[in-house]
Every structure is written in structure tokens, then in C-alpha cells.
Design a protein around this nucleic acid. Structure first.
Lengths: 265, 265
DNA sequence: CGACACCTTGAAGAGGTTCAAGAAATGTGG
DNA sequence: CCACATTTCTTGAACCTCTTCAAGGTGTCG
């Protein structure tokens, strides 16, 4: 509900197909076959600068689309791995769970991001991917990705980059979890979220959290009460405004200063 | 010095080439050109079950070997990415550093493991790789890897698996940093180290730490004093013996119980 | 053998957690 | 559309774990 005023029209965040491509495409709701070449999220999840004939081949990557209702899982720990998923719309969390009941949110993913990479190594997923709002994903069978990336060099390198990016992202999370205090973690979290939303055409100062305080806490290695208290502290300090899930950042620089405060320790 | 009595002869941990292959190979110390097909670490860092002609091609992956003295870096944050490195001998840490002086060890790597994956996404390394003991690595230029993996399917899939494995490993670290207490973290750390050493033919109850308490602490998100105290507590409880860097595990099950103690919270 | 890096241990303190209660929002069924 | 149940969020107070600061011990290497 807060999203539409924040979204910038015509941007990558506007995830509906344009009128032309819809007219050309078959609209069978069961098996929606779609072309990456027409997708306005392409620049986020597919390699850029392809030759026309390569672009056509890329269309073979996506088998079908799949809708995932809020609260439902796209895949679960233990399930057989078959495909990577490119998020078209919606918002996901991924989390690992242990037998003894430990739980850790390992990431939040939004439109244009790829999930499922964890499953490659053992042909089974090792985490759950849960939709935090109604979502739609492009299903990309991995054997087809491997096949195509033998022929399209740009796709091959793109797959490698996506995996490397995820490794680097996780390094950042390890830094956060291993060396930051609560305020620093939450500030870094907010800056990261808003930066990614901005890259998708949303505001760089307002956002709607799609996850609960508990999920934020799990991701940041904090209890939900600490997350709530830290939000309140930022509000008291005049850095942000918070109304439930809605957050407005008033002082981006203050958040940056909090994250980079290591020097004065 | 503690290593030789623990190592099992003839195992993968015995990293020297056999007499035959040395006789055949040119021994120019400047540019040592070596064949993966003869390496007894192959099963750790290369795909298995290759056809003979594929095995020959794999030999093209490794350009040269490179020695890294204890304390020296294999690559540094900011350096241009060119190659992945397979560790032949020695022990590395990788760590990310921020301008404001924060520092986080993101992993410890031993023989047969691959480092450098962080550099793919932006053509620059985003962390430092430091040898914790004199080491030797196989340099594998990444463009050559990409070239070859277009032709050898098993290599292609192997590269994907290595990257996926690293992603899954980091999920585990996030779980550790985000949800475990000091004792649980150190117990998990010891079990992981000893398990990996065991896979290389070393003892599953004795090990020599190649890193300082401070480096362990950085990896586990703890201060070195906490690491030291937790070691001492494990000794008091009769779970391990510690003499500086030498550790003997007396009660593996006790360590396992500590890691999986979440249920009784 | 002396300098330096590394490790251990104690005591005090801070930051985050736990437990608890109530408020606010959200969803559901009549 | 409203009442009720449920989930989510906020806030307070006590507690606990880990950190910080400090001092001394141990090992290593030139």
C-alpha cells in the first residue's frame, strides 16, 4: 500500500510487461511462457550487451513462471534442486534451519535477484525460500543454464558473477555479524535495503519493510526486542521516522556515520 | 612440527609428488609446470570420473605454481582478479577489511581448497588471502577455466559446485555468528577443523591450530580473551587438552552436544 | 638471551537478552 | 462491517554473556 507512491513509474521496479509484448504473447495462465528479451528486469538478472542471436538463445533459459503466495515457500531445505529462480515481483527471505531448532535468515531478496544457488553443490536445497509477499519468479532449469552457458560466453560469465556476488555479499554479512554492534547492524541493514530499492526505481529515503522485527533480528543476529529498541532510538535521535513497517530515512549521513564508527572505538 | 606424527602416510595430505611423476616432469624452479592428472590432491580440487582425454585437457587449467611464505599475501583487497588458486600445501586465512579499520576473518583454507572466488564479480579481489604457514598454490587463470569448462562439462559443473559449496559454507558461518553463544561457536569451529583435517588423512582427535586466538576470535565474532577463556573452560570440563596451538579432543560427543544445545534453551 | 608476539586470567562494566505486560495492527468469521 | 482472535510491535526491569582493561606468564625467533 505504501509502495505505489514510492515507486517511480517506468522504472525497472515497474514489473508488468509493456502493452506491446503482452499483445504478442500467449496469455495461458497455466504455463506462461515468457521471453527474457522483452523483460524490463533483464538488466538486473541477465547479462547485458548480447548480440541479437544470443538474446534469442537466452529466452530458452526460462522454462515457466511460477507464482508464490505470501507465506508460501518457493523451495525448502532438503528438496531436490532443479532450477534457479529469478524474482520478477515480490520479496523473499531465505533461511537455514537446524534440527535442534536454530534458525537464521541468510538474506532478503527482491525483484531481479536470483535465488537457489545453495542447491547446486549437493543437488538438494539447504535452505528455505519463503515469499514475504505475493511473488512471481522465472523458473530457470539449471541443466539448461549450464547447456546454454557453454554456448553463450556472456551467460557463462554472468552465472559466475552472480555466484561470486553472493559470496561477496555474504562476506559483508559476516563482517556485520562478527564485528558490529546493534545500532551499526541496523543502520547498515537500512542503508543496504534502501540502496537496493533505489536501484529499482524506488525512493532512496522511504521504504516499507516486508519482514517482521523478528526476521530482521534473525538476519542481524539480534533479538526482536533489540531491533525494536534500536528503531526507537533512531527515531528519538531524529534519524528516521517509523510507523510500523513504514520507514522514512531523514538523515542518511547519520546512518552512514553509525556504520563507519569503528574508528572511534 | 606437530603435523608429521598426525598425518597418515600415503594419504591426500601427503602433498609431495610421487617419484615417477617427478622423474618425467621438468624441474625448472622458476616456472614449475605441473599436471593435475598426476596430483594426489586432484580428488579434492578437481572433478572426478573424467574420461582420459578430458583429464589431459584439465592439465591445461593450471598455469604455474606459486609459493607463498608464511605471513605473505596471495592476493589483496583491491588487486585485479585473474586467477583462482588451488591450495597444494599450507594454510590460509581470508579476511575482509573496511576503511574504518574493521576486520573480519571470513575463512580458513587448507590443502585442496579453492580461493579467489570473491574476485570474479568485479574483476577485483575484495578480501586478503594470507598464508598462515609456508604454502604453495596452483594458479588457475580464470579465463582459461571458463574456456575449458565450455568444453568439459564435468569441469563446468565442478566450478559451479565449488562456488555453491562456498555459499552454503557461509550460510553455516552466518548461523554460527547469528545464533550461537561463545562455547557453541568454538565447539563448532573445532569440529569443523578436525573434520576437514580428517578428510585429508590427519587425526580426527588431534590438531595444530595454524592461527592465533585473535584470528579465531575474528572468525567467530569473539574477542581473543573470550576464545582463550572458552578453551580453558573446555579443558576444565575434560573435553579437550590444549597446549598452545596444539589441541587434542578427548570428548567429540561433548563438543557435538554443545553445538546442538539449542533445544534446551 | 633479550625482545616481541602470543596467551591466560581476573575484575569491572557495557550491551544485548530474557521475561513480562500492554498497545497497535491485521486477519477472520459471522 | 464489526467483533474477536491473533500476530506484531513497543517498552520496562532484571539478568547474563561477552567485552574491556590490566597484568603477568609463556613461547619463539633473530
Amino acid at each position: 500500500m505504501f509502495e505505489s507512491p514510492i515507486a517511480m513509474p517506468g522504472s525497472a521496479a515497474d514489473c508488468s510487461d509493456n502493452a506491446f509484448s503482452q499483445g504478442v504473447r500467449r496469455m495461458n495462465p497455466q504455463t506462461i511462457k515468457v521471453a527474457c528479451s522483452n523483460c524490463n528486469l533483464r538488466e538486473l538478472c541477465m547479462p547485458m550487451g548480447l548480440k541479437p542471436e544470443e538474446l534469442d538463445r537466452i529466452d530458452e533459459v526460462v522454462a515457466v513462471r511460477r507464482k508464490v503466495k505470501r507465506g508460501a515457500t518457493l523451495f525448502r531445505n532438503g528438496e531436490t534442486f532443479t532450477s534457479l529462480y529469478a524474482i520478477r515481483t515480490g520479496f523473499f527471505k531465505t533461511c537455514v534451519t537446524t534440527e535442534d531448532g536454530r534458525d537464521q535468515v541468510t538474506g532478503f531478496q527482491m525483484a531481479g535477484e536470483i535465488i537457489g544457488l545453495d542447491g547446486i553443490v549437493n543437488d538438494h536445497h539447504t535452505c528455505d525460500a519463503v515469499a514475504l509477499e505475493d511473488a512471481e519468479v522465472c523458473v530457470m532449469p539449471f541443466d539448461r543454464i549450464e547447456e546454454l552457458s557453454r554456448e553463450v560466453n556472456a551467460l557463462q560469465h554472468h552465472v559466475h558473477k552472480i555466484m561470486s556476488r553472493e559470496i561477496v555479499r555474504e562476506h559483508g554479512v559476516m563482517l556485520l555479524l562478527g564485528s558490529m554492534r546493534a545500532e551499526e547492524r541496523l543502520a547498515a541493514f537500512l542503508l543496504n535495503l534502501v540502496q537496493r530499492l533505489h536501484a529499482r526505481g524506488f525512493s532512496s529515503s522511504e521504504l516499507v519493510l516486508r519482514m517482521t522485527r523478528e526476521e530482521i533480528g534473525s538476519y542481524l543476529g539480534l533479538k526482536l526486542e533489540t531491533v525494536s529498541r534500536t528503531f526507537s532510538k533512531f527515531v528519538d535521535d531524529g534519524i528516521i521516522e517509523v510507523k510500523q513497517r513504514y520507514v522514512r530515512i531523514l538523515e542518511t549521513d547519520a546512518l552512514r556515520k553509525i556504520v563507519n564508527s569503528q574508528a572511534c572505538h
